[in-house]
Nucleic acid binder design. Sequence first.
DNA 1: CGACATGTTGAGATGGATCAACACTTGTGG
DNA 2: CCACAAGTGTTGATCCATCTCAACATGTCG
Lengths: 253, 253
Amino acid sequence: MVITPPSSAGPCPKHCRDCRLRSLDAFNAVTPQELGFIHDFRSGVGLAAAGTSIISEQNPNGKLFTLYAGWAFRYKTLSDGRRQILNFLLPGDFIGLQQEFADGASHGVEALTDAALCVFPRDGLWDLFRQFPSLGYDVTWLSARGEGMVDENLLTNGRRTAAERVAMLLIHLYRRVERLGLATDNTIEFPINQQHIADALGLSLVHTNKTLRRLAQLGLHELRDGRLRLLNPRALHRLADYYDLPLRRVPLL
Amino acid sequence: MVITPPSSAGPCPKHCRDCRLRSLDAFNAVTPQELGFIHDFRSGVGLAAAGTSIISEQNPNGKLFTLYAGWAFRYKTLSDGRRQILNFLLPGDFIGLQQEFADGASHGVEALTDAALCVFPRDGLWDLFRQFPSLGYDVTWLSARGEGMVDENLLTNGRRTAAERVAMLLIHLYRRVERLGLATDNTIEFPINQQHIADALGLSLVHTNKTLRRLAQLGLHELRDGRLRLLNPRALHRLADYYDLPLRRVPLL
DNA sequence: CGACATGTTGAGATGGATCAACACTTGTGG
DNA sequence: CCACAAGTGTTGATCCATCTCAACATGTCG
């Protein structure tokens, strides 16, 4: 990944006060003091080209990131190459916290699209907790929320059938993107291929393809040109045993 | 669950300074000030009988706990009853953080054995961050560690075969218990039944039984009278593609 | 033009699910 | 004391959801 100092050009604004994400309804407001600290905490901004690694599974870089634009995913692999995608990352998601603490083997993070990132130094995290406990609280919030996301994926992988898994993935990602204000006409950008879906759902590529086709033929969704359109959200909800929850604003670092 | 004030009798000592867990090598040291705060933060101690609910999946109680003695597990269920165990909880594990923050549907927590718990009020958490940022940092650590644990389980459920899953579960739980100093002669207390194993691994009960037997017949382990003995840890490691990691001390609240 | 990534489809194989018994233990009430 | 129900573990037979293998289509890009 190319890391450039905050002063140089890039999709992340030079100053956090100009952050495009903060104006969204999806994120908590911060005080000017907090905003100032976050800006100072940021050590740079980065760009990761689609398909490149943001955090290597073997050599974690110890940095922290906020995904500013684009999609990414977290994953783990077995030594013979079998890969499991742990969850997908969307703008606003905080990246890299687990590698700081986890005592299990780490995970990798890879960009799905060209992605813009805010970079934070790992050593600065303690300062953040000390100087702005409210931000520390936010970090914990984000961490717990991340765990909740993986919990859901574990339920999906362990106990849902292939069709239920696919339905779950489609709705869940749709809802997350929608919350960022990026859904139009029941349609979102959907920059993942069938191999990614298979690896996220613990299915084979072939079976993923067949299941996807079946749901499409039933008129539940349409997947074309990197865009996903939900044609029958109700049926997808029912199939996935998915329940919409009241939206809450989440912290943003 | 019965909640009694800290002054009454019970397996948790009246004062946190007498906490049995803190003397273990597995946990970080705390300053006297931190210890005092933790003690004041604690609103009571509790006992949960084996098989009873600590946090209900439907009606989360909003409390926070540290498991002091015994085993428990976190789980989620689908509306038709299919259950997925998310992870097992051992002494020292912090419980209930996700329900505070997660915007996904919540999870339940159930005691596997009679369990002793320290109870903390959810409203006190913010105070903790403000007054003792170091403890806030610890909470984040625990949260991130918890996520790492679920990550591993997700990899297991999504990409390991039945035999690999069983091997993984046996070793992983063994190592965790061992770290608490509770392993003797390659043997640990193992108070979970085959249904729990099946629900943790995303397998059917019958297939779990057959797989367990196969591994036992191969001489990899012995499971009797609620105790697990590893007879061939090397083979289990190889089968599960499991790597021991350097032990780190973890925070304890 | 060929190389490569991606998606599609069919045929056949199989790991794990489901169904159905039965054994053993424990606790309970009569 | 026995009879019985409930929880747990075991095993065999059969089924089927998903995997693997194989082939081919399409689009992109050098």
